[in-house]
């Protein structure tokens, strides 16, 4: 999937959706991130004009919060939960397995733009530890040996169906 061209009109619409209010800057950035899979510089400039705050403040927000990325993220975001419960159930090894399988490090995106690998600090599904999410799909009880099959489902072109039996 190609990276979308940044449309000033679209970003303006996002700003208007939140009433152009400074208090909703984080929300606007959330929407920009969802729209473009990253926070483009042009979007920061447009938001700055629309909301009437300095570019620096928005840049500060965009770099402060984990959810935002200044580089385009992959089509599928693989997040390995590294919360406490997942940690004691082997999350570090699951993370390594994902990195090996995708051939990228944490925070990186595959060259074809398909996958980004991230760690996330607790998804609050500790009963399912260790947990890996791919986009919005939650996969519970993941072990290193389940990783290749889990990721394979997303390697095809069509969107993988949600939550096939992971819990064998």
């Amino acid at each position: 999937m190609a990276i979308k061209e940044v449309s000033e009109e679209k970003v303006r619409e996002i700003a208007r959706r939140w009433g152009g209010r400074e208090g909703f800057l984080v929300e606007m950035l959330q929407d920009v991130q969802t729209e473009y899979r990253y926070i483009p510089e042009a979007a920061i400039r447009t938001l700055s004009k629309e909301v009437g705050v300095p570019v620096g403040q928005i840049y500060h927000l965009a770099t402060f919060f984990k959810r935002f990325s200044l580089k385009p993220r992959g089509e599928h975001v693989v997040s390995v939960c590294t919360g406490t419960a997942c940690h004691v159930k082997g999350a570090p090894r699951v993370l390594d397995a994902c990195a090996r399988e995708l051939g990228i490090g944490v925070g990186e995106t595959t060259r074809d733009g398909k996958f980004t690998l991230e760690e996330v600090r607790c998804l609050g599904c500790c009963g399912l530890a260790a947990v890996v999410t791919v986009n919005d799909d939650i996969h519970g009880h993941v072990t290193t040996s389940k990783v290749p099959r889990l990721l394979k489902r997303y390697k095809g072109t069509e969107k993988a169906s949600h939550g096939e039996a992971d819990d064998q």
């Binding site: 208090g23 929300e27 950035l29 402060f64």
Partner: peptide, 8 residues
């Protein structure tokens, strides 16, 4: 409602 963006 305000959504957090991943900062403990």
């Amino acid at each position: 409602v305000h959504r957090g963006a991943g900062a403990f």
